[in-house]
Design a protein around this nucleic acid. Sequence first.
DNA 1: CGCCCTCTTGAACCAGTTCAAGCGCAGTGG
DNA 2: CCACTGCGCTTGAACTGGTTCAAGAGGGCG
Lengths: 234, 234
Amino acid sequence: MQSLIAAAATRCPVLSKASSASREALMRHAVLRRLDRGSCVFTHGDAAESGYVLMEGWIKITRTQPCGAISILTLHAPGETFGFSDSIRRLSRKATAEAATACTVLSVSARSICQTMRNDPNFGDTILGHAFQQNDSLLEQLETLKIYSGVQRLACFLIRHAKPDQERHIVRLPFNKNLVAHYLGLKPESLSRSFARLKEHGVRTVPEGIEISDLDALNALVGDIAGLDLRMTA
Amino acid sequence: MQSLIAAAATRCPVLSKASSASREALMRHAVLRRLDRGSCVFTHGDAAESGYVLMEGWIKITRTQPCGAISILTLHAPGETFGFSDSIRRLSRKATAEAATACTVLSVSARSICQTMRNDPNFGDTILGHAFQQNDSLLEQLETLKIYSGVQRLACFLIRHAKPDQERHIVRLPFNKNLVAHYLGLKPESLSRSFARLKEHGVRTVPEGIEISDLDALNALVGDIAGLDLRMTA
DNA sequence: CGCCCTCTTGAACCAGTTCAAGCGCAGTGG
DNA sequence: CCACTGCGCTTGAACTGGTTCAAGAGGGCG
C-alpha cells in the first residue's frame, strides 16, 4: 500500500513537483480507490471534498444538460489528475466523473491540499501551474473543435495518445469508440467513417489497438486546414 | 491616474478580492495602456511579463496555425482579465491578444503578482480561484461547441452579453460580426443566416445594438438540443 | 444456438460552407 | 456635389461534412 502511494507520487505531475515533506503530508490521508467500469468517482451536484490522481484506467468527465443531452468535457489517461478545481474551491461538483474502464484512483482530501498550500508556498505554485496547464489543454481542445474537421480531430487525438512500438506507433483505447466519438464532438457513425478515411493514411485496427504506420503522414494531415479563411481583418 | 487605478481595483474580479495592502503593492507598478483597435497587447512568442485587467473595450485572444488559419480562443469584455496564465508561469506567450475595439488595459507586472502571492497567501488563493474560474468558462465554451447548433450558440452568446434596458434587453457589440462568427466557430455568412433565423424569436438589429424582446424565448431555444443522443452507455 | 452489444455500411437528409453577386454606407477625390 | 471605391453585411445556389435512420456483420456469453 505504502509503496503504491509512493508510486503515485512519482507518476503524478502535481505530486512529483512537491517537496518530500509536502508529499508525505498529502499522502497521510490519501486513499486508494478501485472503481469498476461505469461507476462514478463523483456526480454533478455532490459536495467536492477531494482531488484525484488517476493511477490506472481512464476517466471521463461529463455534464448532463437539463434536457438530457450528455457532453464529454474531458477524457483523462493514466497519470493525469482531475477534480481539483471544484474541491479546492469547496464548491459542489459541476460535472460527473465516471470510470470509462476499470480504474484505480488516489483520492487526496481537499483539506490536506489546502493545508499543504499554507505550509509550503512552493506547493501552491505547483497547484497554480497545474491549473494553468489544464487551461492550456482546454484551449487546445477548443482550437481543434473550431478549425479542424472530424477526421483531423481524430488524427490529433491519435497522435496525442500514440506510443512508439518498434517501427510503428500504437494507440490503445481500452473503451468503446462511442466515447471517443462524443469526446471529439462526432456521432459514432461519423467516427467509424473517419477511421475508414484514415486507413489511406496508414491507420489500421490491429488486435493490440490502433496502429499508426506513419506518424508524419498524420501530422501532415493535421497541418493543412481545409476551410482556410484569411478574411479576418480587425 | 491614481483614481483610475482605484477604479480598476473595484471592477476587476481578482483585485477586488485582494486585501488593500496587496492591492496597493500590485498597483505601485501597474501601468495604464491605451490601445487602438487592431493593435496587439502581446503576440504569440513574446516573453510574458504582465497580466492585464481590461478597463474599457474588448480584447480577442487568437492563435495562428503554422498553415495560417486563425482561431479565436476567447473574447474578453470590459472588467475581465487576461494574460495571467503565461506571465505567472514566466513562459512565452502561447497566443496573441489583440484589441477588437479601442481599449484601455491595466498592465500588472508578473513580478509584483508573484511577490504579492508570497507575502499574502490569501492573494495566492484568489489567483488560483481565478484560474479555476477561467477553466470553468472554457469548459462551458467547449460544451456549447460540442452539443449546440450554430443558432443555439449564437443565442447563448447573446444571452450572456445581454443588458436589461426597459422592457427588453440590448447587446452592444462594438466590433464587426466577422469576429463574433469566428468566436462561435461559424463563418460570417452562417452567422448572418443565424441572425435571420433568430428574428422569429424576437431578436432584431436596432441602432443601439441587438435587441432581444423576449429573453425567455431565447432561453427556451437553447434548452432543447436537436441531436439528442441517449445511446451513451459506458 | 440465440441474444446482446459494438461497430460498420448504405442512403437520404440537413446544417453549415463555399463561391458569387448585390446592397448600403463611409471615405476619397475629381 | 457626385461618381468611385472599399468594406461590412446579406442573400442565393450549389456543394460537402456530418447526421439520421435502418440494416447487417462480427464477437462474447449464457
